[in-house]
Design a binder for these strands. Structure first.
Lengths: 186, 204
DNA sequence: ACATTACTTTTCAAAGC
DNA sequence: GCTTTAAAAAGTAATGT
């Protein structure tokens, strides 16, 4: 009774936003405890939140990238903490900065072992990248929803590239259909 | 106008020189790998196709040439591992793999995954093993692959373990280290694949 | 012979080289 | 292209005990 779609777990959410204010990252690095800033290495300042656990890349332009959160709610919560921290440093932050989800990474379990060689040919070599010498997963690019799925011999999969919460669910239902139609679901 | 002509001739000459360089590199690497002349010709065709489709822009000539040779070996059924190809190329293995995936996709080569059996004759003869061992190794690969053990595993490691197992079964024992050296994998990988394969064969 | 750590793949934004 | 950040999958490799 447990459908593969029920096994979906969001593992990472990437989102972008902006406070609508230029920042002096050198000063911010001194005022924010735990901030990592190596401009020679990377133009962004790295700031990590503990609860929820996430990492933010803060740029001179005031734009921010948040990554590592386990849900969209966690993204909002983590960014909320950062906005308040900045306000606490008397940096003006827009009232409700728009937060855009850029990528959602999910994992799931199809519940069956997969013959990746047969799958590579069945799904179509033109849409598949399977090079076990370089990586054990089969890479499948799906058009609708537009996501990339990594399939493993164990039947565990990774769905990435989606922007909507339901993209992973739609993709899992679709890939199960396609694999089943090929008679490759044990 | 005269300058434009000279520029065109210069570009044409440069392009011609680049092509000659790529083809001579393919020849040099193919010799070092000991692949037949037919494979070099297939590699040349793949390289020229990549050139015509403008796939070299933003990539090194040597990288595309090496990838074309790697692809040609696979297409002709006598694959070389990325490690082996990287040894005779001046391009890092990671770039060869990335470039191969790119030209393979863009040219629609649609090459099937490498079959571990295709490494058996070459690895076995390098170890001085008999036809009997080769046949046994081939059988082990077929049986364990049919039971789904091949998914996600490296073809060289899979072939190496089967050869090691076959050498034991045929009383022509080679050590894991000897097999690991010719296949360029670690003993740990041979041990792991070997355990799965003998179980699949019903031995234990 | 074990374990641990680390690297391979995919995705995405940010600013700049 | 590259740099950084995060996360999962499973295989392979290097290092440590």
């Amino acid at each position: 009774m447990s459908a593969p779609a029920d096994s979906i777990e969001i593992q990472n959410v990437v989102a972008s936003t902006g406070i609508g204010q230029e920042l002096d990252l050198e000063a911010l690095a001194d005022d924010l405890p735990g901030a990592d800033f190596n401009p020679d290495n990377f133009p962004g300042l790295v700031y990590r939140t503990q609860d929820p656990k996430a990492a933010a890349l803060i740029f001179r332009s005031g734009k921010i990238v948040c990554t590592g959160a386990k849900s969209i709610d966690d993204v909002h919560e983590a960014l909320g903490i950062i906005f308040d921290k900045l306000r606490g440093l008397s940096i003006p932050v827009d009232e409700d900065p728009e937060i855009t989800v850029q990528n959602i990474v999910s994992s799931a379990d199809l519940g069956h072992n997969l013959n990746l060689n047969a799958l590579a040919i069945g799904l179509g070599l033109e849409d598949v990248e399977y090079e076990p010498e370089q990586f054990p997963g089969l890479v499948y690019r799906m058009d609708e929803p537009e996501v990339v799925i990594l399939l493993f011999g164990s039947g565990k999969i990774v769905i990435t590239g989606g922007k909507q919460t339901n993209d992973a669910e739609t993709a899992v239902e679709e890939i199960v259909k396609r694999i089943d139609n090929l008679g490759l679901l044990d | 106008r005269l300058r434009k002509w000279q520029e065109r001739i210069r570009t044409k000459d440069a392009g011609e020189r680049n092509l000659q360089f790529a083809l001579s590199e393919i020849d040099r690497m193919a010799s070092a790998l000991g692949v037949p002349r037919s494979v070099r010709e297939v590699a040349s065709v793949i390289y020229r196709r990549a050139l015509n489709e403008d796939l070299i822009r933003g990539r090194s000539i040597e990288g595309v040439a090496t990838s074309a040779l790697y692809a040609a070996c696979r297409q002709e059924g006598i694959p070389r591992s990325l490690d082996e190809v990287a040894e005779v190329s001046r391009v890092p293995q990671k770039e060869i793999g990335r470039t191969y995936r790119y030209i393979s996709q863009e040219l629609g080569l649609e090459l099937k995954p490498v079959d571990p059996k295709q490494f058996v004759p070459r690895f076995a003869s390098a170890l001085g093993l008999s036809e009997e061992v080769q046949a046994k190794a081939t059988e082990i690969i077929d049986v364990s692959a049919e039971q789904g053990l091949l998914s996600g595993k490296s073809p060289t490691g899979f072939a190496a373990a089967a050869i090691y197992a076959a050498s034991l079964l045929c009383n022509e024992k080679k050590t894991q280290r000897e097999v690991a050296d010719v296949a360029q994998v670690t003993e740990v990988t041979i041990r792991n694949r070997y355990q799965e394969q003998i179980e699949a064969m019903g031995f234990r």
